[in-house]
Design a protein around this nucleic acid. Structure first.
Length: 582
RNA sequence: GCGGGCGUAGCUCAGUGGUAGAGCGUCAGCCUUCCAAGCUGAACGUCGAGGGUUCGAAUCCCUUCGCCCGCUCCA
């Protein structure tokens, strides 16, 4: 077991509250589900994380490294709005995709996505037709022939390969008696009610035996449909888990999008809008403007940090899944031929980056998504995952790096009617005048999308350390770049002119490093207590003015992690600290 | 949304029908020349909220909110 699994989340939460990292939102009113605030140290810690991202992704991308094209990586920032035109979310697929009907079994209490519950209806042709013809959806389609209707129902672009295979199997059953029904726990059978024995069999023995009976000439038709699809069954569908009958609740709509109203009249119908569920779409929507108004050229990235909102079904695990959260997203645009190389480049760099700000490698993994886990438009997605105390021995996602192809730009081009392709003058055959012919294409996109709140939480969890052998057993081993308190200056005792020297040094350090975090000073109580307080808040260095300082202008610097002290000239302190905070 | 657990000072918790407590922390003073030291003192509570039962409720009942865990979900 790694160290992370032995850390107590309760203790971490207590420390976060006690030292002003994280508070419950609206706490004096009893809190509000799924929302958390940051206190003084938390706010600064998160700003440090955001600044580190901004520096290493936008201002000096990838620490100045060259990309797969052999040139320096180039990125620019934008700041786009939380509220976008409602059509942005239709184009992106969020309005449809964030709408998951859920159903629950009253018997075994399992909750499942209704569209994951496949219901097979077996019936004679006549029964099937009358069933279909009584549905609203059927009539709206003008009574299409069954194969066409299948296609309409299941042929949508949101089908996963697995679902498509199921559909093909069903169509095959209906046409040529070649069933190939899927196995699996999420499969429920609803048989036509004429033959009880057969019905029982189909209920309990699927899928092996149902194939056999589907060959029976009495059962010419079978159909798979999903709860939540336009065709509803009669409420008879058995639970795929416990097989109890008539136990599934009516599918209930969950919409993860946060609706709001634009305009003071509050007219929901006319002016309904959404708080963004991700920052990425603002970038795609401004892609053309950035290309047109800057001299940047593909390949390049556009970054955006900011708050997003999702009406999570179950906010949980402290700040890990909040309804309001901050993202740091980069959309990196490149030629389709180069996209795989860039995908690998970003995936590897992002992993390295998280390590560089203090996440230990044994608690961090890069998980490549399986093929069937990918969105239909993605040819590759990896997650950077951290082993939180509450996920251990499993991991929780910090960042997703997705190859999104040209999906988003194409969608927005289609929905807005505005051309979003790019004319690349570095490509195409060489012309007699020495220039190139150029190539017009819709760039492919690599999207490293990080969660800043999750990142901050991971950094705190990773930093949290208990060492009973220390005078101050509980402390935060935060990376100096992330630590909200950068340094503290103490007079060893409150006399003999030490406070004055300390005050002077404190002022100097504040002037120089105050933009990076707090510089503290404290002359009250014993020196041990003051060190301990700084340890608990994660302050990496304490400078102490003692009797020798007055004689030879030296101070001690104490290292948080080891407690070791070193003596240095007082005029070297700023240089020392500046070096450490890089 | 279902089930389980929890909610008392900043933190950790005791208190099961009879005056709201302890330790730690915080603050002030004294002391103190390097690791939560010592002494003295102080502040800090709608007992998560609302309602009910009772002479009397932190305690019993109902409702509600929040947190944690499981199911489940998670671009």
């Amino acid at each position: 077991m790694s160290e992370a699994t032995t850390k107590s989340m309760d203790a971490i939460m207590a420390l976060c509250k006690r030292r002003g990292f994280i508070y419950q939102a609206s706490e004096i009113y009893g809190g509000i589900n799924g929302f958390w605030d940051y206190g003084p140290l938390g706010a600064q810690l998160k700003k440090n994380l955001r600044d580190a991202w901004w520096q290493d992704m936008i201002m000096n991308p990838c620490w100045g490294r060259k990309g797969p094209n052999g040139e320096r990586v180039s990125c620019v920032p934008v700041e786009t709005r939380i509220i976008q035109h409602p059509k942005v979310w239709e184009a992106s697929g969020h309005v449809a995709g964030f709408n998951d009907p859920m159903t629950m079994c009253k018997e075994c209490k399992k909750l499942m996505r209704a569209d994951h519950v496949w219901v097979a209806r077996l019936a004679r042709e006549g029964e099937w037709l009358s069933f279909l013809q009584n549905t609203q959806a059927w009539n709206q389609r003008g009574g299409l022939a069954i194969p066409e209707y299948f296609t309409l129902l299941f042929g949508g672009s949101s089908l996963t390969p697995e679902e498509r295979a199921d559909l093909n199997a069903v169509v095959a059953i209906t046409r040529s008696e070649r069933p190939n029904l899927p196995a699996g726990p999420k499969f429920s059978v609803l048989a036509g009610g004429q033959d009880e024995a057969l019905e029982q069999l189909a209920m309990t023995e699927l899928p092996a035996k149902v194939r056999k009976h589907l060959r029976d000439e009495r059962f010419q038709l079978a159909m798979l449909y999903r709860l939540g699809d336009p065709i509803q069954d009669d409420g008879y569908a058995p639970c795929p888990h416990c097989r109890a009958e008539n136990c599934l609740t009516e599918p209930k709509q969950f919409n993860l999008m946060f609706p709001t109203v634009v305009g003071a009249t509050g007219d929901w119908e006319q002016n309904k809008a959404y708080l963004r569920p991700e920052t990425a779409q603002g970038i795609f929507v401004q892609f053309k403007n950035v290309v047109d108004t800057t001299r940047i050229r593909v390949p390049f990235g556009i970054g955006n940090t900011g708050i997003s909102f999702r009406n999570e079904v179950t906010p949980r695990n402290y700040t890990f899944r909040s309804r309001e959260f901050e993202q740091a997203e980069l959309e990196f645009f490149c030629h389709p031929d180069d996209s795989q190389a860039w995908y690998k480049f970003w995936r590897d760099f992002r992993m390295e980056w998280w390590k560089s700000i203090g996440l230990a490698s044994e608690n961090l993994i890069l998980r490549e998504h399986d093929k069937d886990e990918l969105s239909h438009y993605s040819t590759g997605t990896s997650d950077v995952e951290y082993r939180f105390p509450f996920t251990a021995p499993g991991f929780g996602e910090l960042e997703g790096i997705a190859h999104r192809g040209c999906y988003d730009l194409s969608q927005h081009q289609q929905h807005s009617g505005v051309k979003l392709d790019y004319f690349d003058t570095d490509r195409g055959e060489l012309l007699p005048n020495g220039s190139k012919k150029g190539e017009r294409y819709i760039p492919h996109v690599i999207e490293p999308a990080a969660g800043l709140d999750r990142g901050a939480l991971a950094l705190i969890c990773e930093a949290y350390t208990r060492d009973e052998s220390r005078p101050s057993p509980e402390f935060l081993k935060l990376h100096p770049r992330i630590a909200p308190i950068k340094a503290a200056v103490f007079p060893l005792v409150k006399k003999d002119g030490m406070p004055e020297v300390a005050e002077h040094l404190h002022q100097e350090l504040s002037r120089r490093f105050g933009h990076m975090g707090f510089i503290e000073t404290d002359e009250k109580q014993s020196i041990g207590k003051r060190y301990a307080r700084m340890d608990e808040a994660g302050c990496p260095y304490c400078f102490t003015i003692d009797g020798d300082t007055l004689k030879d202008q030296t101070v001690t610097v104490r290292d948080r992690d080891t407690g070791a002290q070193e003596r240095m000239a007082i005029d070297k302190v700023a240089g020392f600290l500046g070096e450490k905070l890089l």
